[in-house]
Design a protein around this nucleic acid. Sequence first.
DNA 1: GTCTATATTTGGATAGAC
DNA 2: GTCTATCCAAATATAGAC
Lengths: 205, 205
Amino acid sequence: MPITTTSTKNNKTKDKILKVSTVLFSKLGYKGASVRKIASEVGIRESALYNHFENKEEIFLEVAKGIFSSPFSLEHEEVAELAARGKPFLQKFTMQYKMLTFDKGNEDMFRLLMIELFQNKELRAQFMQEFHAKNIKVLSEAFFIMMQNSLIHSSDPMLVAYEYISTLFYIRLQITLMRFDSNSTDSISTQFEKHVEFFWESIKV
Amino acid sequence: MPITTTSTKNNKTKDKILKVSTVLFSKLGYKGASVRKIASEVGIRESALYNHFENKEEIFLEVAKGIFSSPFSLEHEEVAELAARGKPFLQKFTMQYKMLTFDKGNEDMFRLLMIELFQNKELRAQFMQEFHAKNIKVLSEAFFIMMQNSLIHSSDPMLVAYEYISTLFYIRLQITLMRFDSNSTDSISTQFEKHVEFFWESIKV
DNA sequence: GTCTATATTTGGATAGAC
DNA sequence: GTCTATCCAAATATAGAC
C-alpha cells in the first residue's frame, strides 16, 4: 500500500491541480498564477477547484512543501567516511548539488523559492535554515574532519563551508536563470567541477 | 543649472511618485505595488498619477533604471594600480561591494532586482551583464595582473574571478534578506572581510 | 494638476442544479 | 465532483468638471 506524499486516495484531479499549480506558481509566482489560469490549465472550472482545496493559499502551501524536501542528502556516516578522504567528499557533495540544479522538479521549486523569497517571511526563514544552515552544518563537519586528518589547512570550518556553499548557490542561480530563458548552459555546466578543483587546490595541505 | 536624473523641471509630485514607487516596488514587487497604494501613499488620487506617467509600467521602468546605475566603480587605472599590489585591490573592491550592500537606495534596488528577476526577461539579461559579466571583467583583469606580478598562483583569471564574486553575491543576498526582516546582521557583517582574508590566503604565492 | 465619477477587466470565491 | 451563474473586491485606466 504505497502512500503518496499528500493524498492517500486516488485523486487524479487533485494531483493534476497540484502538478499544474507547481508549474504555474514556479513560472509566474503566487500572484501571477491566478486561480483562473490554474483551473483553465487543469481543464476544469474555477469552482471545481474548491472541491479539492479550501482556497488558493492552501494550494500554494501544498506546492511549497516541495521546496525543502530534498530528495537525497548524505548520511552522517557517509559524510565522515568521505570527509576522511578529503576531495572525494567535495566531489560527491557537489555532484549531488549539481543533480538538484538540473533536476526538473527541483528546478521548479528553486525558482519558486527565488520568486517568493522576498514576499514570504516563512520562506525566508526556511531558506536560511534548509538551504543555508543545513548545508553549512554538513560541510563544516566535513571540513573539520579534513583538518583533523591534516588533509587541509587548519582554519574555521564554518568559514570554509560558507565560502564553499556560496559558489555552489551562485552557479545554481545562474543556471536556473539561463534555463528559464531556454539559454544554453554549456558554458557554465562544468563550473561545478571547476569549483571543486579550484577549492580543493586552495585548501589542501 | 543642475539637471536631475529624470525630470528637468521642478516636479515635486513626479519625484514623490518615483520615491514612493521605489519603496513599494522594492517591497511588494511589480504586482504587489498597486497604483492605488502608490497614489494613496503619495497623497493623491489614482487618476492624478496619470498626469505624470502614461501607466504603471512606465513608473516601474523609471524606477528600475536605478537598479543598474552603480554609484561608484573603480577606474581602469585604479584597478591596474591596486591589482599590482595584490591584496589591496581585493580589499578596496570588496569594501565598495559592502557599501553597496548596506546603502539604503542600493538595498532597495537589489531587492527589487531579486523580486522581479524571474518575472522580467530584460532584468535577467541586465543582471547577467551588469551584475555578473562586468564584475567578472574587472576582477579577472585584476587577477591577471596579480598573476603577471607573481603575487598569486597562475590559473584562469576568469575562474578565480567567478569564485570571488560568487561569495560576495551570496553575502549580499543574505544580508539583504536579514535586513528585510529587520534581523540583526551583526553575525554576518564581517563576512566580507573574512572573505578577503580567506581568499587571499588561498591564492597568494 | 487634481478631483469625482465611472468604465472595464481580472481575480478569488460561493450557491445551487445536475 | 463538475457545471453555470453570480457576487464582490481590487486593479488599471479614462472622461470631464474645477
